[in-house]
Design a binder for these strands. Sequence first.
DNA 1: AGCATCAATGTCAACGTAGTACATTCGATG
DNA 2: CATCGAATGTACTACGTTGACATTGATGCT
Lengths: 350, 350
Amino acid sequence: MTTSPTGQFESTPRATLADVARLADVSAKTVSRVMSGDGSVSAQTRERVMLASKRLRFRPNSLARNLRHGGVTSTVAFVIGDIQNPFYFHVAAGVEKELASQGLTMLLATTDDSPGSEAVVVDTLLAQRVRALLIVPIADDQSYLEGERQLGTPVVCVDRPGHNLVADSVVLQNRAGAAAAVRSLVEAGHRKIGFICSPAELYTHQERLAGVRGALLEVGITDSARWERLGPVDGPSAEESVRDLMSMDDPPTAIIGGNNRASAGVIREIINRERRVAFIGFDDFELADSLGISVIGYDTMEMGRQAARLALARLADPSGPPRQVEIPTMLIKRGSGEFAPPDPESVRLP
Amino acid sequence: MTTSPTGQFESTPRATLADVARLADVSAKTVSRVMSGDGSVSAQTRERVMLASKRLRFRPNSLARNLRHGGVTSTVAFVIGDIQNPFYFHVAAGVEKELASQGLTMLLATTDDSPGSEAVVVDTLLAQRVRALLIVPIADDQSYLEGERQLGTPVVCVDRPGHNLVADSVVLQNRAGAAAAVRSLVEAGHRKIGFICSPAELYTHQERLAGVRGALLEVGITDSARWERLGPVDGPSAEESVRDLMSMDDPPTAIIGGNNRASAGVIREIINRERRVAFIGFDDFELADSLGISVIGYDTMEMGRQAARLALARLADPSGPPRQVEIPTMLIKRGSGEFAPPDPESVRLP
DNA sequence: AGCATCAATGTCAACGTAGTACATTCGATG
DNA sequence: CATCGAATGTACTACGTTGACATTGATGCT
């Protein structure tokens, strides 16, 4: 470190291959050989180069290296909507783990759940020449990615399929999970089953709603729509929906929470109620076990891992039709959804 | 898209400035001018270039651009130990938010809480020429970063200071928070206060322990060491520690959880106990409010934001001594820590 | 001995972009 | 009408690394 007369740091320019080569009295190419480990170099020369490299604190510039190799980096971008949601965090964890095992690093960006910023964010990432793009689609059109995909950048949609885009995707077994929740409640004797979820327009929620409705129909329950509370993003909170449901003349005896946020809200509201309401939430969460909350759970990290794997596979072989991986969901019974409704007469055989 | 006779994709090579220039019948430099917006170009030419650019799906290669500009990227690396811990997730959220507001993206990497891999991971990131490095130090020596720092890469330690490294850092008011928890419990009448935390060697835990001990001494409690449970990483779980404590001849009447994990364990164990034990946990968590758990809370995202801000400030002005930002902690009373011990005689005035 | 082989090293150019320097055109001005 | 300056365009080169290819000297085989 040198100090200028003003006392400010004069940042020494970073050492390059050439600098190391000069100090070690070899050619740049030889240094390159030592660094990358391929090509033959005598032990003696290697030693000299290593020493010089250490002395100059040389660190190969992967920008230049990548540029030389056709302009791809060793990073994979993962674009999520809301970094605050623990769900995405766990998915990101899975992505990161899988990528790290392949020597890749994860570039994490968010769109703040704003559809408009999606393309902008993605553009920035693509300009950085990421190897692949994993994205939780939020805008209602991903056709802008089609060209990029054809240019050889694998695109994988996570949690929901993209719109107007042919791409690999990883999704949950939303319908099956939701249906399992309904069936379990029905088995316990419930016929009045509420469903709280928002925002209603989201793919996952539509799937879950479809699963709920389908399963209800299957057992002959056709009048459950009045217990559905499917607000918009800025609509009533889950807490409000619960209060609303429970103040009905004919309240439901069981409630299904459409996602982890809804569940948190529902739990906040029912945890201190005198009237017991059966509850099953979609998405598992910390402490759900101690609280005895039954949920439709799944392996969140696995979702990220699978997404990364799809991208890597596509990287290795760009041909072939798009693949969709389904992450299994399963009902985890912990008590909150396994008791019978208080009023036996509510169990009417069809 | 072209298709080869085999039916495989032939990935068209990505368009470059030169390609666009050829199509638009101008020089590469002119295209560069249009793209970067500086330098004057006639409206007509600009139009032609834009059209060609669109047709070829041209996207400037930021690798080349950055290389040309001295080899710095627009990414900032954030290295954490365990991506599974929600704490880090929230910090990362703060980092990402602050960086995004400056047009930077976050490169998130983990060391898997393995001290040995820290240097390796960091090396990979530095080779990618990140603008700055934010790190939750896990190894017991960060001196290897000293050179990089002098080369002009700001380094910010998050959650705990680095070892053998002069760098900016962001930490919590661990001692003050822990002390506040103790004082609150003492005020409620408790004199037998347990502290459960592991792994004991961590900076944050040492600080919190120091805060607890200091506050206990202040009020004249000197015999509390027997209620400390400070295991190693692979030691007994928090649940086991609670069982251990409560089965003592002289069990504590209150417990402080040293971190969010410990708290989760403690809560699991005491939630269904008949004997009420006062509890205050360090680190806030989801549903703590509905469960009525008092905690030492703080703004986790703010920690990330501050870390990013420190890095940006250092980037703008590398001179000056290292700064340490403290994120305030505060006691959030929710009921679990505000009731008196069951046995009045345990309150002995000193 | 003579030639092929191979290890160890060097030279040069190119990856895609953009800064420097310079060339051309055109209207305006003296 | 010559000249100046603004507007616009071109040629060249460097950023740091590495692939392709060249060169050297030593070893092995017939």
